[in-house]
C-alpha cells in the first residue's frame, strides 16, 4: 500500500500559521492559496485544522473552509471546534470529506464519535490526538497543546477505534514545528495499538526523518506542514525521494 503524503494547514483564520511547539504563530498564507499550491504539488490529501476555534470557543468559520475545498479534487479533512452532528453535516456540505474531532470528544463527550460514525460512516470520522510525553506514558492534550486531559494516549486510541473512528491523526506536542524528527516510539506504539489507519505528523525536518518514520512505525500516512510552508521541499520532491529509497507512494 502507498504511504499517503498529506499537507497540513494549521489555520488561525484568515491565515494558515505555523505554530512552533504549538506557540509563537507565524503567518504563511491563506488556506485557499496553500490548498491550491499543495494540490498542484501532488498532495494525496489536505488537512485543515482551525487551531484556535476550541480555545476561543467560537463558531467554525465555514466560508474559509468552502473556499479551500473548492480548489481541491483530493480528500479534504477539516477540524477545529467540532462539537455537534450539525457541525459534521455543515462541514460535509461545504466540501469536507472527513471531519476531525479532538477537544470536544476528549474533554466532554466521546459519544459523539459513535453517533457520527453511525450516520456518516467510519471513514468520515477522524480523531486528532495531541500527545505529550511524560516519563513512562503519553497524555492527550487539547486546545492546541494547552490543556491536559489526564487521558492516556494508548488507551484513548483503542477507545476511539472501538467507538467507530475511521482514522487517527497523531500529533506530538513536544515535536510539533521543531523540525527535528518525529516521536517515532509514540508513532509505532499507536500504529500497533489499532487496526484503523494512523496518519503521523509533527517533526519532519528532513527527508530522512520522513523515511525513518515510515520504516520504523509504518504509518498509513505522513502529514507535513513546516517543510512545505517554508518551501524547503515540494510534495513531489518528498515522493520522489521516498520512491528512490524503496518506499511506495502514489504518483
Amino acid at each position: 500500500m502507498n504511504t499517503r503524503i498529506i499537507a497540513k494547514l494549521d489555520v488561525k483564520p484568515p491565515y494558515v500559521v505555523k505554530p512552533v511547539h504549538f506557540e509563537g504563530l507565524r503567518k504563511i498564507g491563506t488556506p485557499l492559496e496553500l490548498a491550491q499550491k499543495y494540490y498542484d504539488q501532488g498532495a494525496d490529501e489536505v488537512i485543515y485544522i482551525d487551531i484556535v476555534a476550541s480555545l476561543y470557543q467560537r463558531e467554525i468559520l465555514f466560508d474559509e473552509i468552502e473556499k479551500a475545498a473548492n480548489a481541491l479534487f483530493i480528500p479534504f479533512g477539516v477540524g477545529g471546534g467540532v462539537q455537534t452532528i450539525e457541525d459534521f453535516s455543515k462541514l460535509f456540505h461545504v466540501g469536507a470529506d472527513k471531519v476531525i474531532l479532538n477537544t470536544y470528544a476528549v474533554q466532554k463527550n466521546p459519544d459523539i464519535i459513535n453517533k457520527a460514525a453511525e450516520i456518516f460512516g467510519n471513514q468520515a470520522v477522524v480523531v486528532n490526538i495531541e500527545a505529550k510525553k511524560w516519563d513512562t506514558w503519553w497524555e492527550c492534550y487539547t486546545d492546541c497543546g494547552r490543556i491536559r486531559s489526564g487521558k492516556d494516549v494508548l488507551a484513548w486510541v483503542k477507545e476511539v477505534e472501538q467507538r467507530g473512528a475511521g482514522e487517527i491523526i497523531l500529533q506530538s506536542v513536544d515535536h510539533d514545528g521543531r523540525q527535528r524528527g518525529f516521536d517515532k516510539e509514540l508513532a509505532k506504539k499507536v500504529v500497533e495499538s489499532v487496526q484503523i489507519p494512523v496518519v503521523v505528523t509533527s517533526g519532519a525536518g528532513s527527508l530522512e526523518n520522513i523515511k525513518e518514520l515510515i520504516e520504523y512505525a509504518k504509518p498509513s500516512g505522513v502529514a507535513i506542514a513546516s517543510l512545505l510552508h517554508y518551501n524547503k521541499y515540494t510534495i513531489n520532491d518528498i515522493k520522489e525521494y521516498l520512491r528512490s529509497v524503496g518506499i511506495k507512494v502514489s504518483k
Binding site: M1, N2, R4, D44, Q123, E167, Q195, V198, G221, S250
Partner: peptide, 10 residues
C-alpha cells in the same frame, strides 16, 4: 490483514 478502512490512492 491490513488497516481498514482501505484509504488512499490505488
Amino acid at each position: 490483514d491490513a488497516k481498514v478502512p482501505h484509504m488512499g490512492f490505488n
